[in-house]
């Protein structure tokens, strides 16, 4: 999933990572990182950009580096 912003594009691989981790549910991930399931849904659908702290917590929950979970595509040069 990707979110277009004026400054570039935010991407995430949460859905794939959940699938790779024994099909972890959104609720289970939410409980692991201490947010509501709706917040995980919004992050996964790229409707909400998490704080740096939450982004690290999600990466920690998957035991993977943060760049494996979140990505950034810079805007094309004008």
């Amino acid at each position: 999933m990707a979110k277009k912003t004026n400054k570039g594009q935010l991407t995430n691989n949460i859905r794939r990572l959940r699938f790779d981790h024994d099909e972890m549910s959104q609720k289970a991930l939410a409980e692991k990182v201490g947010v509501s399931r709706q917040t995980i849904v919004a992050i996964e659908a790229a409707k909400y950009s998490p704080s740096l702290e939450l982004a690290f917590q999600i990466a920690h929950a998957f035991e993977t580096p943060i760049e494996e979970v979140f990505g950034y595509i810079p805007p094309p040069p004008e």
Partner: peptide, 8 residues
């Protein structure tokens, strides 16, 4: 009963 998180 959801505790308010950063998005809320």
């Amino acid at each position: 009963f959801d505790k308010a998180d950063e998005r809320d």
